[in-house]
């Protein structure tokens, strides 16, 4: 029954030591949609995002109950291999974090680790990934130059291309444009619209207009609770919950 949902979260609770950070989260996300997570700082949206590919495992004292299923498989199950999980469910961070190596090697890094050695195959992966990330035309003549010489917006798209190179299913984006200028932001937003044809995207954003522009569904988090999830156009014109209304109209607190 979960097969039709890309992601199925049930009774998810998360504790940082004594701090109960996520309370009984229930959420389903369909394939090929963009889900936006909004809410004030400390509401749990980034913590929630990181439960989807077990990034919270890296933090000491974290305890998680409930289940997170991707394609029907519980990512917290004992049979789950974290490396292959993170290949399938990739992540883009707030600040672009290219490796200090060439553009080409940044993209080829993942496939090489996963065993692809042939130059012809790598060439093809690099080109395809950069094209999908709408960066190819800007960098095709300097693939062997350092990635650190790219602008912030280009670096962020490079990081997205690097993710695409390992052929994930789900892209997690944690405020991917908060460090970018407005034009680069729009380029990344535009990119998400083409990427959703192939991938499922979950994006945390502090920019409500961004959530409104790019997402299909929006979830509002508050104090570790998921207040409501609905179609994005519903949330931003007539949300069900008064707390959502107060937050998005700035009458908060």
């Amino acid at each position: 029954m979960t097969e039709r949902h890309k992601i199925n979260v049930s009774k998810l609770n998360l504790f940082y030591g004594d701090n109960h950070a996520l309370h009984d989260i229930e959420m389903t996300i369909e394939s090929n949609t963009i889900a936006a997570l909004i809410g004030p700082s400390g509401c749990g949206k980034s913590t929630f995002l990181r439960t989807l590919n077990r990034m919270n495992d890296l933090i000491d004292g974290v305890r998680i109950t409930g289940s997170v299923a991707v394609d029907g498989q519980n990512v917290y199950g004992p049979e789950t291999d974290i490396v292959s999980l993170r290949k399938r469910v990739g992540m883009v961070f707030q600040r672009p974090n290219p490796f200090p190596m060439s553009i080409y090697d940044n993209i080829a890094y993942g496939p090489r680790i996963h065993g692809t050695k042939k130059k012809a195959v790598l060439d093809e992966i690099v080109e395809r990934s950069l094209r999908q990330a709408a960066l190819w035309d800007e960098v095709k003549d300097r693939l062997n130059k350092s990635a650190l010489g790219l602008s912030g917006g280009q670096q962020q798209r490079l990081c997205i291309a690097r993710l695409l190179a390992v052929e994930p299913d789900v892209l997690l984006m944690d405020e991917p444009t908060s460090a970018l200028d407005p034009i680069s932001t729009l380029k990344v937003e535009e990119l998400t619209q083409t990427l959703k044809e192939r991938y499922t995207i979950i994006i945390v954003t502090h920019n409500m207009q961004q959530a409104a522009r790019i997402s299909d569904v929006t979830s509002f988090f508050l104090n570790g609770y998921l207040v409501e999830t609905d179609k994005t156009d519903k949330i931003f014109t007539n949300p069900n919950d008064q707390r959502t209304e107060d937050y998005i109209t700035g009458r908060f607190g």
């Binding site: 949330i235 931003f236 007539n238 949300p239 959502t244 209304e245 998005i248 109209t249």
Partner: peptide, 9 residues
Amino acid sequence: QQPMASDLR
């Protein structure tokens, strides 16, 4: 101002 929800209405 990019009004939302009831403000937009």
